[in-house]
Design a protein around this nucleic acid. Structure first.
Lengths: 224, 224
DNA sequence: CCTTATTTTGTACGTTTGTTCAATTTAAAA
DNA sequence: TTTTAAATTGAACAAACGTACAAAATAAGG
């Protein structure tokens, strides 16, 4: 479902361990630099420098700049999507789903990965925000994000049969945008509020926010 | 409060009417092109072509590319901020404020301008989203957006005395991010939902979403 | 009308960009 | 060990970028 939108050319030999390591370094560096400057302001040369390799190696492992961005985004997308689907399935065994539970199953897996998986996941959140905001990445979003999103939207519709698919999708987009705001615009919040709090606390607070918002807008919805 | 962060050089003559017209054309074109491609992918040459003038004229009226972006954002910021403050003041006369009313006073003025003020306001929403998402524009946001935002956050704190300033600011940021999502990522929603609806309908739905979310997260908040 | 500040034109400069390619080194496969 | 596919190097390319500047055209102020 994920490896087939830009396949490698056919190989006659297995890649060396060093080659695999460099490929990882390149993708890590690209992830970091893309998240730092955005797609356009990021340069292949800075990515190369960050990875400690030659510029041509970035092209060799990542393809064109645009292909490289696709690869970086797609690399973590499967992992995260699977964790979300799993969380939803697990949650089903513990009784009927609530809005709060649905939102939590979508949000929590990222939090877990971000807290245990290192800085890469934090950079990744910024990339997701870029993809979600820029129509230029519409196809990428369609492939990497939409299938999982659709599962959760469907779950919302099942919970609010009177609500329209459109309203559920809208509420879901609002929720995700709030999540991305939490992850990417801490500087904005610190400018408006004072004290700090842990990431986990803010997550729980956000889940409440979104669950209540979804409940209100989907309960009120006429269902056209 | 708004014209003094990048002043013009002192003039000995009033600008001609043609000059003012071209300046407007340049700012309009810049607004359009910035919103189309983002700051980095936008080029001074495309802005010039869009405005139908020479490249050097864009520099002459807008300054450097970065200064030009500041001018474009600041141009509508005052107008919109004033409308929001006015809406809040007007609303006070009609009885005590509710969360729903506070959110509506912040959201509605933009809707009104977008529906009557032409395509520029739609492009402007994308610029606001860029400024809000990119730390590079922190100072710009601080000058153009924060004062008004602070007023609304304070209003929330007044309504929920037990809630912390931090929680109120977070809820406000979530709400604004959802508003920007509504205005800038219609393509994402259409991918997940089916039927369409009017902008005004979606606005009212979003106000419900945010009001309920704010109420839930600010009522639950311990108030540290 | 005359003066000259300002606006507009046209062009050019130096830099950085993404991408390409031949040569060299490395290591998988036989 | 030999072969050779793959990885890596280093350099170069044309194109596009933001910016600067002198010359020409325009119009405000007196």
């Amino acid at each position: 479902m994920q490896q087939d939108f830009l396949q490698e050319k056919q190989r006659k030999r297995a890649p060396s361990q060093r080659a695999l390591a460099t490929r990882s370094k390149v993708l890590d560096a690209a992830e970091l630099v893309f998240s730092r400057h955005g797609f356009d302001a990021a340069s292949m040369r800075e990515i190369a420098q960050e990875a400690g390799v030659q510029v041509a190696l970035v092209t060799h492992h990542g393809g064109s700049k645009e292909e490289l961005f696709w690869r970086v985004v797609a690399r973590r997308a499967n992992d995260l999507s699977q964790a979300r689907i799993d969380a939803l399935e697990m949650r089903r065994f513990r009784g009927p789903l609530t809005v709060h539970a649905i939102v939590e199953c979508f949000f929590a897996p990222y939090l877990e990965k971000a807290e245990t998986g290192g800085a890469g996941w934090f950079a990744y959140a910024r990339l997701v925000a870029m993809v979600s905001a820029d129509p230029r990445w519409e196809d990428l979003a369609k492939i990497c994000f939409d299938p999982t999103a659709q599962v959760f939207v469907d779950e919302l519709v099942r919970l609010y049969p009177a609500a329209s698919q459109r309203a559920a999708a809208a509420g879901f987009v609002y929720s995700v945008s709030a999540l991305l705001a939490l992850l990417t615009t801490e500087w904005r919040m610190q400018a408006l509020g004072d004290a700090r709090s842990s990431l986990a606390e803010r997550f729980e607070e956000l889940v409440c926010f979104c669950a209540a918002g979804l409940d209100a807008s989907l309960s009120a919805d006429g269902g056209v």
